[in-house]
Design a protein around this nucleic acid. Sequence first.
DNA 1: GAATTAAATTAGGCAAACCTAATCTTTTTA
DNA 2: TAAAAAGATTAGGTTTGCCTAATTTAATTC
Lengths: 221, 221
Amino acid sequence: MAEKINESIALQDYLKAIYKLAEKSDDAVSTSAIAERLQIAQASVTGMVKKLAEQGYIEHKPYKGVNLTTQGHQIAIQTIRRHRIIELFLVEQLEMSWDEVHDEAEVLEHSVSDKVVNRMWEVLGCPDEDPHGSPIPNLKGEFKPQRRFTLADAPVGQLLEIARIKDKSPEELRYLEGLGLVLNAHLTIEDRAPFQGPLLIKTPERMFALDNAFAQAIWVV
Amino acid sequence: MAEKINESIALQDYLKAIYKLAEKSDDAVSTSAIAERLQIAQASVTGMVKKLAEQGYIEHKPYKGVNLTTQGHQIAIQTIRRHRIIELFLVEQLEMSWDEVHDEAEVLEHSVSDKVVNRMWEVLGCPDEDPHGSPIPNLKGEFKPQRRFTLADAPVGQLLEIARIKDKSPEELRYLEGLGLVLNAHLTIEDRAPFQGPLLIKTPERMFALDNAFAQAIWVV
DNA sequence: GAATTAAATTAGGCAAACCTAATCTTTTTA
DNA sequence: TAAAAAGATTAGGTTTGCCTAATTTAATTC
């Protein structure tokens, strides 16, 4: 008899975190990973996970991890959609800077109504990418399919264009910007060291080494 | 030792409600009035009022009522400023309608950062009035002073311009709109019945009677 | 001025989301 | 494979902001 519960802020944050973690590992998501990402105590996550499972947003196998159900997936995607539209709106319409919009959007994604988000989206011209180059799902929660690699997987010696930089801290973003690694910039991978080693990158301006950790965050076409 | 506490949503709602109630009565504000306005049980209001008083946002004389302190006043004004800027932004930039923006703003005023609100304000051209004609305080919380009356107090037989319509429900706003009573519209009071009775109003289009309750919500220049 | 009514307050509780500490499970390692 | 370490869960507690019911204070009215 208990079904349609509060779509609270916490709920959305958990589902979004699980979605993002699942995206990069493919496995069931561990409670500790969620705790780490949301900066919440493990025990609290266990408790919340239990509730979310009871209410049908996720599946939970104790000691094994969690997976989103269709219902949970839908909410996660919609939350991400909101987030990205808000980011883009702040950058394009309010002329805010790339590295300050993430935190704003993190708050607003929970309080802006669908109506307002959709108006923003229309005003922006119904884009399918946000300022980091991340895809924006459409109204039905579908992403526009794209063929992309991270720098860590992309072919050596080929001209590439940066299509996306996954969430990084403002400091890291500024570092990358300093190197000329921004959305739509062009570059070539000259060499890649083995064992997850650094990459040798050439841009129109210069040549430099990039740690593999960063390479995994940069998507190219 | 307990001083700078959470500037929570509830806090802002209470201070704003007290501000608005004080504005129209001049007296200390009763807990029941707050309860009525916020749709919260009286006992809950008493409890909250106690906390707000302890923390220095209001002064509370038990059984007598409350008044804002300078600190509480400041927060109330800033919350109202946010509200009005958001409303205006939604109307002007997102082309939303007059009667749907209030509820949106009611939520967003608590989560939009000062930085974003100020960018909105600049994009709007630093206005000093919102779409209802209500004044928007500037960054320091000062209102631009204005000489205005409600229809209930305005002189008979003189050409008036509507400068403000105080918060009314969407239904009521639509009723007024149907009569041609919108922001900046012109009209004349032909006659006013005694004992808080109805007014006889003439607009360029027609002539009609208006209940005194509505007259008190309409400000004119 | 005593009795009724209205308004405000106290008392005791609840739900959401956290937390810490203690107790399992599971995995790793010697 | 037994012991140690890592990860997950349970148990019990906190804070915020709300609720209902009971009580107290103030204002009205007969």
